[in-house]
């Protein structure tokens, strides 16, 4: 069984990799298995964790969970064409709660905190900063400022304003470049992990 299992894993791994050569039957088979298995995986997991774990055994004496179950039932009403419109209610509920929650969360963490951290004594407290820090602080202040100017929609990007926006887009591009570099790093690591499985765990060729 142990041998069978690792060969199955290797077979499927190679199946996905074979897509690099071209779209072929081996890949399509692996892909179909993947779509089926992953849909089923989430289906089962969500049932046991959320419906069973959270509601069926987990509700305790918290009557509020019945509201959740009720919303869930309304959602399933979509299966009955005549009353399908009622599934808009739970949807409205979720969207409303998300909107409220995100409004506050993003405002406090991403606006307030980030503005707080951008506002700093550029030369250090009591002019204590080293040249390295000083340049860095100025770069951050200028970059954040001009980046925000780029996102200004209700004013034409011309003149000084346009120039600032241009500087902003430069900063955004550097950010994307850095992000790109890190993504390459990440993806290569994952490939290394997979090839380590093939050559190491499966075939035992790595010392």
């Amino acid at each position: 069984m142990e041998h069978f299992a690792i060969w199955v894993a290797a077979f499927l791994t190679m199946g996905i990799i074979s897509f690099l050569y071209k779209d072929n039957a081996w890949y399509k088979l692996s892909e179909a298995i993947f779509v089926g298995i992953s849909a089923g995986y989430w289906f089962v997991t969500l049932f046991w964790d959320n419906i069973y774990g959270k509601f069926w055994v987990g509700r305790g004496d918290d009557a509020m969970l019945y509201i959740g179950a009720f919303l869930g039932l309304l959602m399933l009403m979509r299966l009955v064409p005549k009353v399908g419109w009622i599934s808009r209610w739970p949807l409205a509920f979720i969207v409303g709660a998300t909107a409220g929650f995100y409004l506050i969360n993003y405002f406090s963490s991403n606006v307030m905190r980030q503005v707080e951290d951008t506002i700093m004594p550029l030369l250090g407290t009591d002019y204590s900063a080293t040249t390295y820090d000083m340049i860095g602080n100025i770069v951050i202040a200028v970059g954040t400022f001009s980046g925000l100017v780029y996102f200004f929609f209700s004013k034409e990007h011309k003149g000084v304003f346009g120039g600032t926006a241009k500087v902003g887009i430069f900063f955004l591009m550097i950010t994307f470049g850095a992000s790109f570099g890190y993504t390459v790093m990440s993806r290569m690591s994952l490939l290394i992990g997979r090839l380590d499985f093939l050559f190491g765990d499966w075939l035992g060729m790595i010392k």
């Binding site: 969207v95 409303g96 998300t98 909107a99 409220g100 995100y102 409004l103 993003y106 405002f107 963490s109 991403n110 606006v111 980030q114 503005v115 951290d117 951008t118 340049i135 860095g136 770069v139 951050i140 202040a141 200028v142 970059g143 954040t144 001009s146 980046g147 925000l148 780029y150 996102f151 902003g168 900063f171 955004l172 591009m173 550097i174 950010t175 994307f176 850095a178 992000s179």
Partner: peptide, 25 residues
């Protein structure tokens, strides 16, 4: 430095976008 600045501009911009979309909702 520059990367952090750019990320911040994006973060603040997105946050404002989310605030206004949420408010509209």
């Amino acid at each position: 430095f520059p990367q952090t600045a750019g990320q911040r501009a994006i973060m603040i911009g997105i946050a404002l976008g989310i605030v206004s979309t949420s408010l509209r909702i």
